[in-house]
């Protein structure tokens, strides 16, 4: 297996209170330096709560946001958006809100043709053939092509979004909360479709979600993000069965499970740290029952335990 996507010390910070001239008033570190490797054919799940930086990370990977520091390698080459056509053939993105990711004033055919025309320079006959092929693979009828986005349900629109990403023939797909806007019965349709496509077309997924159960159901490995940093990464079955970071355990315990009695899993201060005024040391320490002085002084690095696949950024892992 080869590494198709490699992030090295990738970070993003946003200036706050910009001025026309001179330095901004403050800086928010949305993503702190992150190292990740995604291997050919795997699904890496990324979980985290709102504001943890998971969407910022995803948008950097597809070049929609420039990184502040660090580097991204795709198939061993550094990320290069100079030629949009070449770049779009390597990596694609499926958006969270299926309806708003489609231009309300374009027909589905126009939406589908854009990547074929711009990325693959196909003529119109070739485009029609290819669209028919893709639509068959995502179970959409071809008579949808001449309709406008508002005529579709969320599940159908999301399949159109997936179809557009497939049209680029990129081997890496970044899926940013692809099912969180959908109803459960439809959510499963889309997840299963994604699973089929992956094995059929030999794709690699980076699957971002806040829903632990969904991530667990589709991922080979999972990375847990908190306050812009990866706090734990490991095989999907281990992460939730035997979490080692206290935050991962908190997440797993908070997920509602039928039949488990209701209790608030934490009683202490529950707010995320203030991004403009981040705490020293470990960002989770204010919420952590195991926090010690050491946690306040230094931020822990991701370190492997006995099992090298499962790494955790904690001085006192579970």
């Amino acid at each position: 297996m080869s590494d198709v996507l490699k992030l090295e010390r990738l970070s993003k910070s946003f200036p706050v209170g910009k001025r026309l001239f001179g330095a901004p008033k403050g800086v928010v570190h949305a993503v702190r330096p992150v190292d990740l490797v995604v291997q050919q054919g795997e699904t890496l799940g990324i979980v985290g709560e709102s504001g943890c930086g998971k969407s910022t990370l995803a948008r950097m990977l597809v070049g929609l946001l420039p990184a502040t520091t660090g580097r991204i390698e795709i198939n061993g080459e550094p990320l290069n958006t100079a030629d949009p056509a070449a770049f779009g053939r390597k990596i694609q993105y499926v958006f969270q809100d299926p309806i708003s990711s489609l231009n309300p004033r374009k027909t589905i055919r126009q939406v589908m043709e854009a990547p074929l025309k711009r990325l693959h320079r196909m003529d119109s006959a070739a485009r029609a053939r290819r669209i028919a092929e893709i639509f068959a693979s995502v179970n959409l009828r071809e008579d949808f092509l001449d309709r406008y986005p508002h005529e579709f349900s969320g599940g159908q629109a999301q399949r159109i979004g997936i179809a557009r990403a497939l049209a680029a023939e990129a081997k890496i797909l970044i899926l940013d909360e692809p099912v969180s806007a959908l109803d459960v019965s439809v959510q499963a349709q889309v997840l299963n479709l994604l699973g089929d496509l992956k094995s059929r077309l030999d794709l690699t997924y980076l699957f971002i979600s806040h829903d632990l159960a969904v991530v667990e159901a589709v991922s080979d490995r999972v990375a847990v993000l908190y306050f812009g940093s990866v706090v734990e990464i490991g095989p999907a079955e281990d992460i939730f069965r035997a979490p080692r970071h206290p935050y991962t355990r908190l997440l797993a315990q908070s997920a509602p499970v039928v039949g488990r009695p209701l209790r608030a899993p934490e009683g202490r201060e529950t707010e995320l740290p203030d991004p403009l005024n981040p705490p020293t040391g470990c960002a989770f320490r204010a919420r952590c029952p195991r926090a010690t002085e050491q946690c306040a002084a230094v931020a822990p690095d991701l370190t492997a335990g006995a099992d090298t696949d499962h790494r955790v950024a904690c001085f006192h892992p579970l």
Partner: peptide
């Protein structure tokens, strides 16, 4: 059956076809 629950591992999910 469609609702994925934590702790069941990687699997194919149930879906209800249609709308």
């Amino acid at each position: 059956a469609c609702v994925p629950e934590l702790g069941e591992g990687r699997r194919k999910l149930e879906a209800i076809p249609g709308l």
